[in-house]
Design a protein around this nucleic acid. Sequence first.
DNA 1: GCTATCTTGTTGACCACTCAATGATATCCC
DNA 2: GGGATATCATTGAGTGGTCAACAAGATAGC
Lengths: 155, 155
Amino acid sequence: MALLRGHAGLRRIVAAQLHDAHELTVNEYEALLLLDEAPDSRMRGVDLAAGLQLTPSGVTRLLDGLRARGFIERAHCPQDGRVAYAVLLDAGRAKLRRAACSHVAEIKALLAERFSDQELATLAALLSRLPGAGCSGEGTGGSMHAACPQRAADA
Amino acid sequence: MALLRGHAGLRRIVAAQLHDAHELTVNEYEALLLLDEAPDSRMRGVDLAAGLQLTPSGVTRLLDGLRARGFIERAHCPQDGRVAYAVLLDAGRAKLRRAACSHVAEIKALLAERFSDQELATLAALLSRLPGAGCSGEGTGGSMHAACPQRAADA
DNA sequence: GCTATCTTGTTGACCACTCAATGATATCCC
DNA sequence: GGGATATCATTGAGTGGTCAACAAGATAGC
């Protein structure tokens, strides 16, 4: 029951740290992460929306911001005129590398001061059963978000 | 790690249900809940802010909305001209009763379909260690948010 | 080939919240 | 008493997201 409230505080702290230190939203950070893991460092907006649990319009605005700051660029798909790829640029990758370092450290510190390793494992196992908990760790490889190699709906 | 993402989905679902069925925000719901549990059904804005993990301005706006709909009223504190109590009205209490029913059922259903009772207990025990996880269940009584009997800082 | 339907992305209006600044009142200390 | 400081609430501006409506392209049925 106190799940909602408890987590809100954690998210707030992490968001504040990420924002102050790197001028990034949590969703912006995770978007960069998803793009970095995706083949060709590019994803369709709709897949990004699924991965981030965001509405399409939310993705549009998020990508607007990332593009304005030079972290990504937009690319049209030659086979499908509707899709607009988001492509991770070098600047974006560099930003991600820098942010990931302190971001991961911050979270680890926050959790380590409250839980033992075993408790953390238990927690992770349980929480991964929640809806939309695609394991977005730091080095997975992106196994489940249909990362659009070249027009996935072509067959 | 996937903690953040996993929880976001849950919160979204609950928020949507609460909004569609009762025209209430999660924070509005919890504000009514806190007021209902508080002595005299009234709280100071600052205590509400602490309980809801919200900024003072957020509380002001939230209370504006609740007052406009007749769920609460504002009352001045005779001993301290700065504080503006939020007082739960009958309409607000009725709203809370109605919403609590389906809200609690919804959450229970969501969790029950994914976790066993024991897992839930484990989860709750762990998560209650997170910052700001004051156990805001359904019948606690409000033990820790300094519910302002009559001007708490008077002594 | 043409129309109907589905997908993808964008836009406008809005919402809940934040931060920074402000006003008003209380408290402390001399 | 009177000034410095702290506390409580509100306001204005800005942000990150939603929903509803829409435009444009892809697909399917016939």
